[in-house]
Amino acid sequence: PTPPYLKWAESLHSLLDDQEGIQLFRNFLCQEGCADLLDFWFACSGFRKTSQEKRAKLAKAIYRKYIVDGSGIVSRQIKAATKSFIRDCVGRPHPDPAMFEQAQTEIQGMMEENTYPLFLKSDLYLEYT
């Protein structure tokens, strides 16, 4: 069978589908000062599955932690129009489960083009393999 660390090099999704892969990628992102990208990506996935009674509070928590401060790594990578859409949704009593989908897509695109290829060339990954 293919060892997990070779699977991680196939796609970002293969990497994010494996606990050890996530851990190593997160360590790499911590070194680079951008672990929030990964946490935000998982927060968006988790948000979709969250029960309706927790959703409004969770939307505020995600918004406050990653988006409201324009100097944060996540906020800087999300388009202004997407942020303004999220700001409108956060104020609603029953936020849409898909309200973070566009932002998640933008952050994922950034990871696929930038941090994920860097990770595959990093000492951390090469030493692991």
Partner: peptide
């Protein structure tokens, strides 16, 4: 009542793949 941080952590963990 959960704090916002706890809620966020719980949400992130819920989206992670389970141990294989």
């Amino acid at each position: 009542i959960d704090s916002e941080d706890d809620l966020l952590q719980e949400c992130i963990s819920s989206a992670m793949p389970k141990k294989k």
